[in-house]
Amino acid sequence: MKRFLINILKVIMLPVIVYLIFLVICFERFSNWNCIYTIFIQTIIPTITAYAIAYGNICGVFDFTIGSRLVISGVIGGLLAAQYGFAGMILGAIISAIVVGIITGVLNWWLKIPSLVLTMGLAMVFEIIGSKLAGHYGFVQIDNKYAIFGSSPNIVIIFLLSAVLFYFVFNHTVFSFHMRAVGSNEAVAKNSGIKTDLVKCKSFVYGSVFIGIAAILTLSQSGSVGAQTSLGSVTIMFKPLISVLLALVLQRICDLTIGIFIAQFTLNIIFIGLIAVGLPDTFQNVVLGFFLLVVMILFENSGRIEELKEKRAARQKAMSAS
């Protein structure tokens, strides 16, 4: 129990330390609860998107189509909202996300080419499809009465339900154990009787549910979804992907469900803080990259750091005894 509480404290300290740094730098902007609430709300959609990325990432699949699939899902949901209301928006977004996810997963299974190459090509194809569906103006809008999921408390409730769903699938299903086995060593997993190609295909499909949810929230929060071209959709998955990488490091001390949220929350603090400071976009990316490196170095070498501390303590004890 003591170790569990210490691990929770370690995880929470990451965003707290980052927030305190920006509190000192920009006290007026960060010294109110409204700032924390705003960061939390802005963390929800990227976190759900990161849940979609996590499945593929864990089983060794790199998926460039996340953003383009989210756009297609949002566009179809928006178009069907005008025809069939809430039911059209919800079912249209989720079903279209799953269908496109199945297509991606099956092609990855059949074509036997690296997922990085396949999904990059598919991302460009899906962007064109999304652009055609969006029509002449390149975006789809919804009526304000269908945007209730984009504000509190509805968006918070949907986020909590999404987190519970991700937690259950990741921790309490056979698929999750097969997924981790494939990601750990695909050859060994295959020799153990696991259908590795099927597991990878399922990772696209399972992730598509969260893509559909993220599309609905995006549509509701902004009131529209715009088409992307020339791999512009890849930027949608940039921050969620980094949060997954950080969460996989944090997984040693907390569940991946919480780790992804904590990592994304911390990243949002950094982005908002850098904007408040007035730094240009290029320098923001430099700071973000540096932060990612520092965190991963510290956590990846945590065992070595502990060994050095123990050796130092033993040396000091020996010196005091002599």
Rank of each mutant, 00 (worst) to 15 (best):
L5G: 00
I6W: 01
N7D: 15
N7A: 09
I8E: 13
I12A: 14
M13T: 15
M13W: 11
V16S: 05
V16E: 04
Y19E: 08
I21K: 11
F22M: 05
L23T: 09
V24T: 14
V24S: 13
C26K: 13
C26L: 03
F27Y: 09
F27Q: 09
E28W: 10
E28I: 11
S31E: 10
S31K: 11
N34E: 15
C35W: 03
I36P: 05
I36K: 03
T38L: 10
T43I: 04
I45D: 03
P46N: 04
T49L: 14
G56S: 02
C59F: 10
V61T: 13
F64C: 11
F64E: 06
L70S: 04
V75R: 02
G77V: 04
Q83A: 13
F86D: 12
M89Q: 02
L91Q: 01
G92F: 07
A93N: 03
S96G: 11
I98T: 01
I102N: 04
W110P: 09
W110L: 15
L111M: 14
V117Y: 10
T119K: 06
G121T: 00
L122K: 03
M124P: 03
V125F: 02
E127H: 02
I129W: 06
G130D: 03
S131H: 00
S131T: 00
A134H: 01
Y137A: 09
G138Q: 10
V140I: 12
V140K: 01
N144H: 07
N144G: 08
G150W: 03
G150H: 02
S151G: 00
S152G: 06
I155N: 02
L165M: 12
Y167G: 02
Y167M: 05
V169E: 01
H172M: 10
T173Y: 04
F177C: 10
H178R: 00
M179R: 00
R180Q: 14
A181D: 08
A181T: 13
N185D: 08
E186W: 00
V188P: 06
K190N: 09
G193S: 09
C201E: 11
V205K: 05
V205A: 07
Y206H: 10
F210N: 02
I211A: 05
A215Y: 03
L219Q: 01
S220F: 05
S220V: 01
Q221S: 11
G226S: 15
Q228D: 07
L231T: 07
S233W: 03
I236R: 01
K239A: 13
I242V: 14
Q251D: 14
L256N: 04
I258P: 00
I258V: 15
F265N: 02
I270K: 02
G273S: 11
G273F: 13
L274H: 07
G278K: 10
T282F: 09
V286K: 00
V287I: 14
L288R: 12
L288D: 06
L288E: 13
F291M: 11
F291W: 12
L292C: 07
L292Y: 07
L293E: 10
V295P: 08
F299R: 10
E300P: 01
N301F: 10
R304E: 15
R304N: 15
E306D: 14
K309L: 15
A313S: 11
R315S: 13
S320T: 13
